[in-house]
Design a protein around this nucleic acid. Structure first.
Length: 560
RNA sequence: GGUCCUAUGGUCAAGCGGUUAAGACACCGCCCUUUCACGGCGGUAACCCGGGUUCGAUUCCCGGUAGGAUCACCA
C-alpha cells in the first residue's frame, strides 16, 4: 500500500505540512527561557463552574508566577475547545471571560482577548483550526500511522455487544481493527466514491511487549510517577466531520501553542496513554502534566463523597456566589486554601499581603478530591471582608443589590449612610467579624431601613408587658440624642434600678430572687424596640446612625 | 467488571522510621460583655483493616476494604 497516495486521496486540499506550521508558530521567547505557558480550554457550553475556576487558578498562578531568564513572565491563554458543535452556546466565550475576570483571572492572549483578528491569531478556536489538524493527520496517514475507518454505527454497536458478551475490553483494537486497517487503496477509493462516511483512526502499536503488557510512565507534577498500560486502541483522531477529537486537538494545539504545563482535571488521567502514543507517533515532546483533584461534596442521601454535580449542587455554579453576594476575593482565597495546603498558614503569617505574593507550588497540591466546605468559605469571607474598607464594601453591596435585590437598591444608594452602617465596630482593636456575603449582610443590617424594619423577636420573659412599656416610656422621656455613650448608658442604669432590675448582671445571677431581671433584659427591650431583634452591635452607635427621629418614632410606635 | 488514583479527628490538613500525632473550620465549656459578634483560655475528637521489612511503623512493601475517576465520532 502506498501511504502517500492514500494521504493524497484523503486530503487532496491540504497543501501545508507540519513543518510549515512549526515555522508559523515557533517556540515562544519566554518558554525558551523557562517561563511557564498554560492554557484554559473550556468547551463553549456557557456553563462555567467552580471546578473550572479551580483549574484556571492553577493555570494562572503557574504562568504568572514563573519568569523567563530575562524576567518576562509566563503566558496564560484561552483556547476554546469547540470541536463538538452540539455543545456550542451563543455568547459563551464572553461569559467565560467575564466570569473569570470577576474573580481576578485574566488571560494574556487567546479567544476574545483583543488580538488583531477578533478570533485571535493563531486561531484559538479549535473549530477554526481544521486545516492545521488535517495537515498533521495527513502526515500520519502518509507514514502508515493512521488510516480511514468506515465502520458504521451499527457495526460499532455489534462489536461492542460482542465484546461485552465475551467480557472483553470494548473498543477498536487488535483483531477488531483488522478489517479497516487492511483496506486496500482501491477499497478506500471505492468507499469514498460511494460517499461512505469515515473517520481517521490512529494505528495503535498496541501494548503487547515481549514480557507482556507494556506500561507508560509519566511524571505528573501533582501526582508524581503515574504508570498505566500503554494505549492499544485505534482511537479516532479525526471525526467524520473532519474535526479532530479532543485527544488529537490537545496534542496538536498544546504543541503548536507551546504549552509547557497542561493543567486539567483528574478525569483526563485515564486518557493519558492515548496522548502519549499520539505525541510519540507525531515525534513530538509531551508537555508537563498536572492532573488536579476533583471537587467533592458529601451527598445528603448516601453520605458518601461525590463529585459536585451541575444538576444537584447550586454551589458548583459560579453564579451562585454572585447571587449570594460572596466577594470574589473570598472565593479566591477559599479556593487557594484547598488548592495549596500551606496557604492558610501563609495567610495567618501575612494577613495583609497581596495574594499574588504567595508562592504557589504544585508540590503542595493534594491529589485527593477535597470536600467543598461552606463553613470554611464563610469563615474566610469574614476575614476578607474585614480588610475591605467600608466605602468599598458599600459599593460592592450596592452593585450586588442592583442586580439581585433591585427593590432594596434605591435605599442603598445613600452611600454615606450605608458606609456608616458597615463601619460599625470595624475600626476597634478587636473588630467585629459578622459580615460574610451580600445577602447575609443585607439581612443583618436591614433594620436600618424603615421599609425592612420589623419586630422579629419577643421581649425576654423576665420583663412583663407593663414593665416593658414603662421602660420604653421612661427611655423616650429621658432620651437625649446628644448624650455620649456613658451618659446614655447611665440613664438606662437609672431606669433599671428604679424598676427593680439588677444594674449588674452578676448580681441578678447570684441572687435571682432579689431582682426581676438585669440590665441586660432592660437593654434587650430597647434593642427590640429600636432594632426589632435582640442581637445587634452597640445600641448607642446604632442610634447615632439611625438618627433621633427614627429612634423616637420606633419607640413611640410601641408605646402606642 | 477492567484500568488508574486516593486513604490522619465531622471538614481542610501538617507529618515524610522514633513526635505528648501540629494548625485551621465546625462543635462544646468558661472568661470578657447591656445582647450578639470579636477576642482570650480550655475541651471532645484521628493515623481504614491484615500481613510483612525493621530494634521500632501513621510513615516503606504486599494484600484486602472503602471512596473516587474513567472505559463515546463529549470535552
Amino acid at each position: 500500500m502506498d501511504y502517500n497516495k492514500l494521504a493524497e486521496l484523503l486530503f487532496p486540499q491540504i497543501d501545508k505540512t507540519p513543518e510549515d506550521y512549526e515555522a508559523m508558530f515557533p517556540q515562544r521567547q519566554n518558554a525558551a527561557g523557562g517561563a511557564v505557558i498554560t492554557r484554559l480550554g473550556p468547551s463553549p457550553t456557557g456553563f462555567i463552574h467552580l471546578g473550572n475556576l479551580y483549574g484556571a487558578f492553577v493555570d494562572e498562578r503557574l504562568a504568572h508566577q514563573s519568569k523567563a531568564a530575562d524576567g518576562t513572565p509566563g503566558t496564560f491563554y484561552l483556547r476554546i475547545e469547540d470541536t463538538d458543535d452540539k455543545r456550542y452556546v451563543e455568547g459563551a466565550v464572553d461569559t467565560i471571560i467575564n466570569s473569570l475576570k470577576f474573580f481576578g483571572i485574566t488571560f494574556d492572549e487567546g479567544a476574545g482577548c483583543g488580538q488583531p483578528d477578533a478570533d485571535g491569531e493563531p486561531p484559538y478556536y479549535q473549530s477554526k483550526r481544521g486545516p492545521i489538524y488535517q495537515a498533521f493527520v495527513k502526515r500520519l496517514v502518509s507514514q502508515g500511522k493512521a488510516y480511514p475507518c468506515f465502520l458504521t454505527e451499527e457495526e460499532l454497536a455489534d462489536i461492542r455487544a460482542q465484546q461485552e458478551a465475551a467480557k472483553e475490553t470494548t473498543g477498536i483494537y487488535g483483531k477488531y481493527a483488522e478489517k479497516n486497517r487492511s483496506l486496500t487503496y482501491e477499497e478506500v477509493e471505492a468507499n469514498i466514491a460511494a460517499g461512505k462516511p469515515y473517520v481517521i483512526r490512529l494505528k495503535s502499536k498496541g501494548n503487547q511487549g515481549p514480557d507482556g503488557v507494556v506500561y507508560i510512565h509519566v511524571n505528573d507534577e501533582i501526582r508524581g510517577d503515574v504508570s498505566m498500560p500503554a494505549n492499544d486502541q485505534d482511537v479516532i483522531i479525526l471525526k467524520a466531520s473532519g474535526i479532530p477529537t479532543y485527544h488529537f486537538a490537545h496534542v496538536i494545539d498544546d504543541h503548536l501553542m507551546r504549552t509547557t504545563h497542561v493543567v486539567r482535571g483528574e478525569e483526563w488521567l485515564m486518557s493519558l496513554p492515548i496522548h502519549i502514543e499520539l505525541f510519540e507517533a507525531l515525534g513530538l515532546e509531551p508537555p508537563i502534566y498536572c492532573h488536579t483533584a476533583v471537587l467533592m461534596k458529601l451527598d445528603d442521601e448516601t453520605g458518601n463523597k461525590r463529585k459536585l454535580s451541575k444538576r444537584k449542587d447550586p454551589e458548583l455554579s459560579l453564579d451562585y456566589y454572585r447571587q449570594e453576594g460572596y466577594h470574589p476575593q473570598a472565593v479566591k482565597e477559599y479556593l487557594l486554601t484547598i488548592l495549596n495546603s500551606n496557604f492558610e498558614e501563609w495567610r495567618m503569617a501575612n494577613p495583609d499581603a497581596d495574594i499574588d505574593e504567595f508562592e504557589f507550588t504544585t508540590e503542595k497540591m493534594n491529589s485527593a478530591g477535597a470536600l467543598f466546605d461552606l463553613n470554611k468559605l464563610n469563615d474566610i469571607s469574614k476575614d476578607v471582608l474585614l480588610k475591605i474598607p467600608a466605602d468599598e464594601l458599600a459599593d460592592f453591596l450596592l452593585e450586588w443589590a442592583r442586580e439581585f435585590k433591585p427593590k432594596a437598591a434605591p435605599l442603598l444608594e445613600d452611600k454615606e449612610y450605608l458606609t456608616k452602617i458597615l463601619n460599625i465596630g470595624r475600626d476597634d482593636a478587636k473588630p467585629r467579624k459578622d459580615l460574610i456575603y451580600a445577602k447575609q449582610i443585607f439581612d443583618f443590617i436591614s433594620y436600618f431601613y424603615d421599609e425592612y424594619f420589623v419586630i422579629e423577636e419577643r421581649i425576654p420573659e423576665q420583663v412583663c408587658d407593663e414593665d416593658a412599656k414603662e421602660i420604653l416610656k421612661r427611655y423616650l422621656d429621658t432620651y437625649d440624642h446628644s448624650d455620649d455613650q456613658s451618659q446614655w448608658f447611665e440613664k438606662i442604669r437609672t431606669i433599671t434600678a428604679d424598676l427593680g432590675y439588677a444594674v449588674k448582671p452578676k448580681d441578678y445571677k447570684k441572687h435571682p430572687d432579689e431582682y426581676k431581671g438585669s440590665v441586660a433584659h432592660v437593654s434587650t427591650v430597647i434593642r427590640i424596640a429600636v432594632m426589632g431583634r435582640s442581637q445587634s452591635p452597640d445600641v448607642w452607635t446604632i442610634q447615632q446612625i439611625l438618627g433621633e427621629d427614627k429612634v423616637r418614632a420606633r419607640i413611640s410606635e410601641l408605646i402606642g
